[in-house]
Design a binder for these strands. Structure first.
Lengths: 250, 250
DNA sequence: GTGACTTTGTGCATGCGTTCACAAGTAACC
DNA sequence: GGTTACTTGTGAACGCATGCACAAAGTCAC
């Protein structure tokens, strides 16, 4: 059978799109965000000696519906066998390649506080092809310290470290007030992908991707739903009533 | 086989299904996820002495478009003044109330490893109404230790701690293999919102919200885009070509 | 080879989220 | 009062993501 034409419409016609970091790509962004989930589920299955898996089984392991899983995988190609399922090792390799995990990614970690320490020692990075190649901090007390087998470097060495190690991804784990400065330095050094743990919005030029991880925001989202599950959703406390009255009055 | 009651992690909050008193107050999930962002921007503005802000200014500070911001805020009510903008303090209070930050949330933190330490010492929780009320671990070496002013408790005290402190939110910072067990215990104790840092999919009954924070997944998403920015997007390695040929032939 | 059975891949419909564009409302000034 | 300038709030259009349902394509037994 011939490889059916994928809609090539969005292949290269994205020039006019002003999406700074949006992926005007064949694979939808929502799908990209789930591929790592599938990959993890497949790895677990492989470790248990499973060699073939159906979309139902894999979907359950990854916590999605089977229809969604099949549609997601269909964007990568026809890697399954009808009537049988997907080959675990084969599919794992295809997804790894699609994400870009067949190569090694050198990462710079800036901000060696509590969180920085935790990240530097996190084994989940190395096992997926991410190698922390540089630890950087501005605090003189931290510089020179040995953390997770690396020596903490001063911030003014950032550009040099980025070039020396071929670092394309930077991780910011500094306090919020330092984040933008660090970000600027990373970008100046040539980093085009940033993972930001600091609770602040980063300004970056076009072509640089930023993803953020903010535990405080996640907790607040949970609190919103929690509030509506438990308490009296529409009851007003005296304080709220006063506020409302004030607002109406102007 | 029938569909089991299993439900995998997916924040769901359909208010319209059984709204008790005809609320029609459904705030879209995407909007809820941005409210904390607005809140943070407003707090920063307030600290700088700003008392009034336009949707354009606030949107820039929060990193969204002004149209999106206005639509988001319109779900909460008409809290702005046409021709003028929004009152910073007033809007701040309204959003806080909507999210549920006017009350204090007691949180249980399970897993006191590197990450657990970092979370226990994170000041961003306390400043937003989240109070870490219990630290729990299974490691005998950790139990009894003093961390961030609290004593680490054994896991079998979890239910008691939840009830004593009125804990509704649990944070899981254990290794992946321990996460589901901890999750089950939290749910059994009455927790209905869980923030999961462990790289695994949690199974929870209906009515329990799970949100996950997975740094490895975020890095992989960055890697995907990075791969397409830099390298040759369409070049095939010999290995890939062989795979493709096999697929076409097969 | 044939038929029964299994599972993928996908066209279509639906719903959610974002963007656009402008009417409605407010302030300031003459 | 009337006019001008400004900003919110929102209806409508659009695009992306999800769920459904089934034809296509494979395996297996005989």
């Amino acid at each position: 059978m011939t490889r059916s034409m994928r809609r090539t419409q969005a292949a290269r016609a994205d020039a006019s799109a002003n999406a700074p970091s949006g992926g005007a790509r064949g694979v939808p962004e929502a799908t990209v965000a789930r591929l790592p989930l599938y990959l993890r589920a497949l790895t677990t299955l492989a470790e248990h000696g499973v060699s073939t898996v159906s979309s139902d089984q894999l979907a359950e392991a990854a916590g999605v519906t089977s229809a969604k899983l099949r549609k997601d995988l269909s964007y990568l190609g026809s890697y399954g066998t009808r009537g049988v399922g997907y080959g675990v090792d084969f599919l794992r390799h295809q997804i790894s390649r699609e994400i870009g995990l067949t190569q090694d990614w050198a990462v710079a970690l800036v901000g060696i506080g509590h969180l920085g320490h935790a990240l530097a020692n996190y084994s989940g990075f190395a096992s997926r092809g991410f190698r922390v190649a540089a630890l950087v901090d501005t605090d003189p007390a931290q510089i020179g310290q040995e953390v997770a087998g690396l020596t903490v470097q001063p911030a003014d060495k950032l550009e040099e470290l980025i070039k020396r190690h071929g670092i394309a991804i930077g991780v910011i784990a500094t306090p919020a007030r330092a984040a933008q400065g660090v970000c600027d330095r990373l970008v100046a050094g040539g980093v085009t992908s940033i993972l930001n743990f600091a609770p602040t919005v980063l300004q970056v030029p076009d072509g640089v991707d930023v993803r953020k991880v903010d535990m405080s925001i996640e907790l607040q989202i949970l609190a919103y739903h929690e509030q509506r599950k438990n308490g009296a959703p529409l009851a007003l406390t005296p304080e709220q009533a006063a506020t409302l009255a004030e607002a109406v009055r102007g």
